[in-house]
């Protein structure tokens, strides 16, 4: 049984990669356009906003919390930018969304850590509040951005398209934070065993708080990258993107139960999700089937996570007497 569990675990842990290869083969067989280099570049450009969001989500998920408000943060920060900062140079706009995103994330973090309300509820509430404020401010109109923002989409840095560059920067920073700073390792500690973290004297509340701040900042930045691509912000902007972000993280191996996963996996998950949408697009699938397929993938991701956690628990069960060697 134990060996069977380990084999199953191995498959589950690599399920996203297996899925990815299968999808590549299927789409590749159905359309020769899918395998074009330009298409892969497109997929990564399209995946950039959601990957950035999902990277922020990873921090929150690692502490066994959840942030459902990222789509709202994205919508509100972009709306404020379109309404009040049309003439500002883009770096000012970027700084503004970073600040606003971080501030909203801090509000989430304070309510979760100080008032002890479940993050699921808190961020669900802030999601609706933020969307509500944005719709109120914009009268539910679709707002267009000027050339200052739009030209960014075509810009390149060192030959890399700006969206990909932004996403690489966020990824690199997040990776360094999680793996090379005391804070990052403590994030893992808190998520892995909150009780032990408390006993070890770690500032659990502060760590969780900063994860929400990071998720907010990433939501602002992801939204910013997204508006350079779309050029407009309307009531459907960022709608339900929180689920894609969570799905990307979970597909990439981040556990909803905290303590396990990495941003590299998350990025992979985001690219996987976008590949599916891109592939469906290329084979001219019925647009109404997109949500079904995306939902199926999310479901799969969560089911895999649950199964994986159960197996790991079984493998780590404490034994009373030595297990005889097989």
């Amino acid at each position: 049984m134990k060996i069977g569990s380990r084999a199953l675990l191995l498959i589950l842990q690599n399920a996203p990669y297996i899925l990815f290869v299968v999808l590549l083969v299927v789409f590749g067989l159905m359309s020769d356009r899918f395998f074009a280099i330009a298409n892969f570049r497109n997929i990564i450009i399209q995946a950039a906003p959601i990957a950035i969001l999902a990277i922020g989500m990873t921090f929150v998920l690692l502490t066994a919390q959840i942030d459902l408000s990222v789509g709202g943060i994205m919508y509100l920060t972009a709306t404020v930018l379109a309404l009040y900062m049309t003439g500002a140079p883009w770096p000012v706009g970027l700084a503004a969304v970073i600040f606003m995103g971080g501030f909203i994330g801090a509000l989430n973090g304070v309510v979760v850590t100080r008032l002890g309300v479940a993050s699921f509820i808190v961020t669900l509430a802030t999601l609706f509040i933020l969307r509500g404020i944005a719709m109120y401010l914009s009268n539910t109109r679709t707002l267009m951005f000027g050339d200052e923002i739009l030209t960014l989409n075509r810009a390149t840095v060192l030959g890399i398209p700006s969206a990909i560059f932004a996403f690489l920067v966020v990824f690199a920073v997040a990776w360094v934070i999680l793996h090379q700073t005391p804070f990052g390792r403590q994030v893992y500690a808190v998520g892995g065993d909150p009780e032990a973290a408390r006993k070890a004297g770690l500032p659990v509340a502060r760590i969780v708080f900063f994860c929400f701040v990071i998720a907010g900042i990433c939501a602002g930045v992801g939204g910013f990258v997204s508006i350079t691509q779309i050029g407009a912000v309307g009531p459907k902007y960022g709608d339900q993107i929180e689920f894609s972000a969570i799905a990307a993280a979970v597909l990439g191996g981040v556990s909803l139960f905290g303590g396990r996963g990495s941003v590299a996996g998350t990025v992979f998950g985001a690219i996987l999700i976008k590949s599916v949408q891109n592939g469906l697009n290329i084979i001219n699938a019925d647009p109404y089937i997109y949500p079904l397929v995306t939902a199926a993938i999310i479901f799969l991701a969560v089911a895999i996570d649950g199964l994986r956690t159960r197996i790991i628990e079984r493998l780590e069960r404490r034994t009373i007497r030595p297990v005889s060697v097989e």
Partner: peptide
């Protein structure tokens, strides 16, 4: 035991006071 299973041995030794 009060250890974090998802961290390495060295990280467990220093988790509350990492040298910088």
């Amino acid at each position: 035991l009060n250890l974090f299973h998802n961290l390495t041995v060295e990280e467990n030794l220093f988790v509350d006071a990492f040298p910088r």
